[in-house]
Design a protein around this nucleic acid. Structure first.
Lengths: 339, 339
DNA sequence: TCCCGTCTTTAAAGCGCTTTAACAGGGAGT
DNA sequence: ACTCCCTGTTAAAGCGCTTTAAAGACGGGA
């Protein structure tokens, strides 16, 4: 207890003093860099543990101009994107990167959150279905390694990872057609990202299967699905099956159907999109198209780390295959409802 | 273009050179500290803007041993806590603090997330309904300013902000009793945080109103509510009203009820808890008890900043008043179901 | 004219870590 | 015995900013 006996956080220097070495050696040992001998390593590690030493990330980062931090703006209210963010954190973790999340809110739009994240010195950004205009994305891509997930946009100075949404919806339609459905409705995602792909996939697939196909304007929230459901209920005749633009919309739609006495899947089959956690809930038990959140997250992290390492061979558009997950919300159409 | 014409990020020194001042002055100006004259300020600001200068947070933090960062572990899958996190970010923002979120996942338990956040040099932590044992919380509170939100735990080296859950449930019961309900069920939160308070509040209030009161084991997820609903449906007689431990549970319960042909609120009234976003959805339209997320978040941020400033007058337990939000899921009991 | 107080500005010493270049101290080779 | 080359270790110079103690500038009162 020389001068300061206040419980100061131990520094590298303290560890060095404890073992009678220089801070340089200790630094090497602690980071597992080659150089120090086995005996030295052991002593240092023991001393560090004894002192309860934890490196000061800030200082370390300042010194090496690296942060090993990935920035991810999140919309906390969107369950699927939150799930995706979680997967990104998992994937980043496995590669030795930490993730800083920052919430997009009314007071903090996407642009501002990006700045916050950059101020935290994130080395790269992972944007989940960003709403930023293409030009803004390109500009941002100039500044920092970037990967855009879940949006069909031409890669320009950044990478894109997404799922072939048209195929996903096509698989859903094929499934319904296989069950005998001939009158399909798509509650679309209006002008949201990927909505166009899903809509096009629906129309093309329905045509291919010779089914009657209608599109109702929807959106990506439960509200939107509920609204579409009310529209369908007041319309002339219910279709035998509905494919929504995402699971949240499907849940809203289901809810309104149930309240109206429409049984699922007896009266109407419903297919969602995303395979979000809520689709997996036993009481919802929604047939849906999996976006393979884990795979997308891993691909995104890999892409951005490649770019960070400078091994990026030009902007890449990675398109993963979706996967139909059949659950209890789909079944054969009611005989009376056919033709 | 002397040596490095690579687009290096401008430093404080560059700004200083541009205006012919020292870095010290520039630093003062940029932080709005008193000292520099108005004329100087203007010149510096102009130069900084011209160069597109952005301070290096890492270096700044290293130098002043402050980060102005609040750490918040989040469970992204829990919509209400995510909403709370969002409110915390808003509140922190208003007070000049940034928020670092880190996701609690299967691979990253609460304890580990806390370490991650501390490594990022968060100055204080805001824990939203943490699951850590009381002793661990106390230990953590020794290390770093801490506030626990939404958990009824004795403050010990940290502050607690919560809502009077027993009162909230009591208000719900009073509302139902006022409508004429005499046969109530509480689908509780099992052993989750605050569940005991809500359960006790329910029993006490029901007794006060002379209503028949039953408690069914539930939990905080849709699954739990759905399970409880199935249990009620197979039981002897449905109650005329159900109070759940939270909104998610209520939604699961509603869903199962609807599928079983039970109409809400005609056959059964349902009250949730939290006033999460999903309760507000038009098609759910759930009567619920607001936890005043915004107020809790603000109180939490204030408490932890006080503690950080050292003005904390001992551990505080701030208990806010809940507020009943009446929506469409409650109504008078069916005449036939009375008595 | 000189001294002093007020208002600005700055030199320089860190913050805690990384990294580079250089330096001991031994064998091995000649 | 001498040089060469390892291997292991370290002194010292930063990283980009903040902060402190002190120096300048300037005007007013004695």
């Amino acid at each position: 207890m020389s001068t300061a006996n206040a419980a100061r956080r131990p520094r590298l220097e303290d560890v060095a003093a404890a073992v009678g070495l220089s801070t340089a050696s200790v630094s090497l040992v602690l980071r597992g860099e080659p150089g120090p001998s086995a005996a030295t390593r052991e002593r240092v590690l023991a001393a560090a543990a004894g002192l309860g030493y934890r490196p000061d990330r800030t200082a370390s980062l300042l010194a090496r101009r690296r942060t090993h931090l990935l920035g991810v703006p999140v919309v906390l209210r969107d369950a699927f994107r939150a799930e995706l963010a979680e997967e990104v954190q998992l994937a980043a973790d496995a590669r030795g990167y930490a993730v800083a999340l920052s919430a997009i809110t009314v007071a903090h739009d996407e642009e501002r959150v990006v700045e916050t994240l950059l101020d935290l010195r994130c080395e790269a950004l992972v944007l989940l279905s960003p709403e930023l205009a293409g030009a803004r994305l390109a500009a941002l891509g100039q500044r920092v390694p970037l990967v855009v997930v879940g949006r069909h946009v031409a890669p320009a100075g950044f990478d894109v990872v997404r799922v072939a949404d048209d195929e996903g919806v096509a698989a859903a339609v094929a499934h319904l057609a296989g069950l005998g459905h001939r009158d399909l409705v798509h509650v679309d995602g209006a002008d949201a990202p990927m909505a166009a792909d899903r809509r096009a996939g629906f129309l093309a697939a329905a045509a291919r299967h010779g089914a009657r196909a209608r599109v109702v304007t929807g959106g990506y929230t439960e509200q939107d699905g509920a609204r579409a459901a009310r529209e369908l209920l007041t319309g002339p005749a219910l279709p035998t099956a509905v494919v929504t633009a995402n699971d949240r919309s499907a849940v809203g739609l289901l809810d309104v159907f149930l309240r109206a006495g429409v049984r699922v899947p007896r009266d109407v089959s419903v297919v969602g999109y995303d395979d979000a956690e809520l689709a997996r809930l036993r009481h919802v038990d929604l047939t849906t198209v999996s976006q393979e959140a884990g795979a997308q997250a891993r691909a995104a992290v890999d892409a951005v780390l490649q770019r960070l390492a400078g091994n990026s061979t030009g902007p890449a558009d990675t398109v993963l295959a979706p996967r139909l997950v059949v659950r209890g919300s789909t079944g054969p159409p009611r005989p009376s409802a056919e033709t």
